[in-house]
Amino acid sequence: MTTQLDTVAPPAARRTAARRLTTRVGRVRELGIVVALALVVIPTAIVNPRFVQPQSLRDLLLNASIVALLAVGQTLVVITRNVDLSVGSVLGLSAFLTAQQFADHPGTPVIAGIGFGIAVGLACGLLNGLLVALGNVPSLVVTLGTLYVFRGIDYALAQGRQVNAANLPDALLDLGSARIVGIPILVLVTVVVIAVAAVYLRSYRSGRELYAIGSNPEAATLAGIPVAKRTLTTFVLSGLVAGLAGALWVARYGTVDAAAGTGLELQVVAAVVVGGVAIFGGSGTVAGATLGALLLGTITSCLVVLQIPAFWQQAISGALLLSAITVDRLLALRLAKALRTTEGTSHA
């Protein structure tokens, strides 16, 4: 009897200790990105004070916001132990179709056009989700395939044409440059999407279930979580966000051809992983992914300001991704060790 009681008590104590440790590590992780951001921004600002002027900060946020948007969708997918490599192609397809919609039907209301872009993204995401959830095929391969297919459709529809700002309604282009209390609307939209996703992941049952799926798919199934349905939802949401990003891309850049967003998927995955979302699922936050996107975008801007050849940008983001996953791994090993020690002490 006593032995039974003994084994019941320690796990609870252990769990709180473990939770405290996990939160601490999580905080250290996000703090690390903030420190990295400071390390990039402060020297650049000293060399060139114009870097921290409102206008260049606005440009910085605008440039980072597209990747940050895509990173939100990607976070949902990666948390469930999947990956969506097709986001760059979905963005491209949605951007071109939205722009063409505006060009062909000049009377289209801005909201309707953006809705159209979102619908395109949603359809792409639905296809990905169905293939992954029902076809039982690894998402890496499926989205690698649809990366080609969506981009191919994009090129086939565009046939070498591009839509210029002259063919787009002023209301849409204004959206790309308009500001509310000094903050660009596009950035505000991004912030709203991030906030909604963060609340969903944190406080909603189905949001928490995504973490359960990513931590252990079999256990999630046994616990009665509708794994296929949730997985499908994450891909639909990722596509939806990529569609929105495509429509905003049109508003921001004004000129769109079929190549919009090519190769963006790697930046997005890099941002998510740098932001502390584990590629094997089960952990990570939208806030972290956003910080990751912001860090990568800031580095790009800093290189420009410091007049370092842009050639360095790719090498740096690669090195950053590698160091981020290495640090994560080392932290995780430390955490595991620490947990073992707490376990030991609670038994003693």
Binding site: L266, W312, G318, L322, I325
Partner: peptide, 29 residues
């Protein structure tokens, strides 16, 4: 990176995809 640190090869090689291509650009512009 994959074997000694136990990192997932997908993440590692996405990182080195950018790193090696970046180095190529640094070398030859």
């Amino acid at each position: 990176l994959v074997t000694r640190l136990g990192l997932p090869s997908l993440a590692v090689t996405i990182g080195t995809l950018a790193l090696y291509r970046g180095l190529a650009l640094v070398v030859l512009g």
